[in-house]
Every structure is written in C-alpha cells, then in structure tokens.
Amino acid sequence: AWQGRCIGTPKIRLVEFSAFMEQQRDPESYNKHLFVHIGQSSPSYNEALLESVDIRQIYDKFPEKKGGLKELFEKGPSNTFFLVKFWADLSINIQDEAGMFYGVTSQYESTENMTITCSSKVCSFGKQVVEKVETEYARFENGRFLYRIHRSPMCEYLINFIHKLKQLPEKYMMNSVLENFTILQVVTNRDTQELLLCVAYVFEVSTSEHGAQHHIYRLVKD
C-alpha cells in the first residue's frame, strides 16, 4: 500500500526522518524538540496517492551543474525522485546551549541486502554549501533489511542557520530566507552505484501549534 503513497520504490523506502535538538537536563531527563519529522507510518489503500510536481519547477533550487538534479533525473530511474515540503517547527526558545545535541535520524527499509550511501547536500540559492556522505549496512529484522542512520550530528552550518533564522522577528522573514534554503538527499547502492532514492527538501516555518508538518510529492517531468 505504501507504493505511491510515501517516499519509496519497490526496492527501498524511507521509514523515518527527523531533525531534532535534544538537551540533557540531568542524567534521567531529556528535552527533545523535532524541527522536522516524517514518521513511521504505514499508509493504507484508503489514503490518496502522492501528488506530483514537475521537477523543472525546482531545478534552480538545487545544484544544476555536473551531478545536479537535472542530470540525476535524466539518468533515472524516474520513480526514485521525491519532493518534501516541510513546515518546520521553530517554536522553541534556545537560551542555554549547555548539553545541547543537534541531530538527524533516518531509517530506510528494503527487500534486498545492500550497502547504501546517503549523500545530504545543503544548498543556498541552489548552490551546495555542505555535503555529508554516510555509508550504512543492512540489518535483517522482521523479514526485511533495515538501514538506520541514528543520531547523526547536525553540521555547524545547519546549527548556525537555525540560530540565525530564530533571530528573525517575523515568520514571513524566516520564510523568505527559507525560500533559498534546500536540502538534497541521494541514496545509492554503494556497490552498484544504482540510484535508489533522491529526495529534494524545501521549507517553510510551521504556523501550527502541533509541531512540524509535511507534504510529499513525486517529482516528474510531464
């Protein structure tokens, strides 16, 4: 049921993604705040299929030169391309940085035993500013292969970016900055170099009192 309803292909799917900050108050208590989150949901057949977005509408928000989004899409396979619009939850006061941890956790599952490489590129005005590349090995659990990138430390650039964003007095100003801030994640099979997933992330600030929200789209070329 999840095919066409979440980020995935017959080979692999994203099960969970979250970017968070966590502060240890004392040995037994933590405060955790989720900036963005895609949960461990199992969509049913009742749920609507993902809407699609023409990838050409967002090319310039991501690297355009060699190895850029256009080149990736031309190489395919085209069913591996997704767009996530996040409404990030920035409703938190960061007063004391002591014991603060900024991290990203993501989890994928597949039917095949692979070693995956995950590249995450942070882009400003479509230009890559930092890239993190992680390699993850499969763990067999409940009849499928799991890949968990657990509590990967957020880079300094992102932490500073969040701090600067928080200093802006109005949400429309934050959204105006976020219009030129994007993240591109590319998951490949390390051994075959096959593209498994390519997820483009764009952002706005959440106005909800219920935390981060998101919409997922398929990227297509009509």
């Binding site: 509408q57 959440s206 919409h215």
Partner: peptide
C-alpha cells in the same frame, strides 16, 4: 543568476504546496 529567480509562489506547484497540513 540568484537575483532573477522566479518566486516560488509564481511557479506551477500544486495548491497543497501552500497549505500546511492539519495534524490528524
């Protein structure tokens, strides 16, 4: 160039792109 970008609001994107989902 970065200064002549078309604003996202003026691009062909689904209506839902501008509608923050309500938590269920």
């Amino acid at each position: 160039g970065r200064h002549d970008q078309v604003p996202m609001r003026k691009r062909q994107l689904p209506a839902s792109f501008w509608e923050e989902p309500r938590p269920t």
